[in-house]
């Protein structure tokens, strides 16, 4: 009985959301607001239950751990809570500065080690044995050429030419044009992937709707 009730709720919400295909409507809005409220309420609970309690409160009340050190994040957390009051909110800039500082370091580390070094190395690996047969080399050359032309498409600086404004050298423009082609193909391929992914989910939802209707009709 309870399962049927929850299935009915899921069914109604699915139809309410899909009704947006026709246009914005009250049913869609109700489903939307309820969904945003439930997900926000759930995340609030998860944050308290799985981060704030075990990582901040428990070490503070447990004398066996280094409670002294935890006084700093506690203080920073209290300062963050001042953001709830418009008059005291300026105090919250200190913990935010801490977060931004950590974030900046994580960004640089991630960009250098996660992308830059990995991708540059991968460009060379296409040429190594056992792929170093002709088809492997062609693949490597296309990958290299595509990556370089794409990268050069973005070149922002150019020379100030009288009467022309800021222009890049003609050969850079040509390379950039080829890079633009690679970019269009890449984004098209990703768009196809996105369409196929969303289509799979849509089929799943329509299947659920049909199955639910079947359970109602004996």
């Amino acid at each position: 009985m309870t399962d049927t009730l929850w299935s009915l709720i899921a069914f109604v919400l699915t139809l309410a959301i899909l009704s947006y295909a026709i246009g914005d409507n009250p049913l869609f809005r109700i489903a939307l607001y309820t969904f945003v409220g439930i997900s926000a309420g759930y995340l609030a609970v998860v944050l308290i239950d799985q981060v704030i309690f075990p990582r901040l409160i428990t070490p503070l009340v447990n004398p066996s751990t280094a409670s002294g050190v935890m006084a700093i994040p506690l203080l920073l957390s209290l300062l963050l809570l001042t953001r709830l009051s418009p008059r005291l909110s300026f105090l919250g800039s200190l913990p935010m500065a801490f977060l931004v500082g950590v974030g900046a370091a994580v960004i640089i580390n991630g960009a250098l080690f996660g992308t830059l070094f990995t991708q540059v190395r991968a460009a060379g690996l296409s040429f190594t044995f056992p792929q170093s047969v002709s088809s492997g080399w062609i693949t490597g050359m296309v990958l290299l050429f595509g990556a370089i032309t794409t990268l050069l498409y973005f070149q922002f600086t150019g020379r100030r030419e009288p009467g022309k404004g800021i222009v890049r050298p003609a050969w850079v423009e040509w390379i950039a044009r080829i890079g633009q082609g690679f970019i269009a193909i890449t984004l098209g391929a990703f768009f196809a992937g996105v369409i196929l992914a969303s289509l799979t989910v849509l089929i799943g939802r329509l299947d659920f709707v049909l199955q639910f209707i079947n359970t109602l009709v004996p």
């Binding site: 830059l116 540059v120 190395r121 460009a123 060379g124 690996l125 296409s126 040429f127 190594t128 044995f129 170093s132 490597g140 290299l144 990556a147 370089i148 990268l151 050069l152 973005f154 070149q155």
Partner: peptide, 21 residues
């Protein structure tokens, strides 16, 4: 940095060809 990366990509390919990567 972009031009540095282009040079690095070419270098990486050369190292790959010689199997030094």
């Amino acid at each position: 940095l972009r031009w540095g990366t282009v040079i690095a990509l070419v270098l990486s390919a050369v190292l790959g060809v010689f199997g030094w990567l």
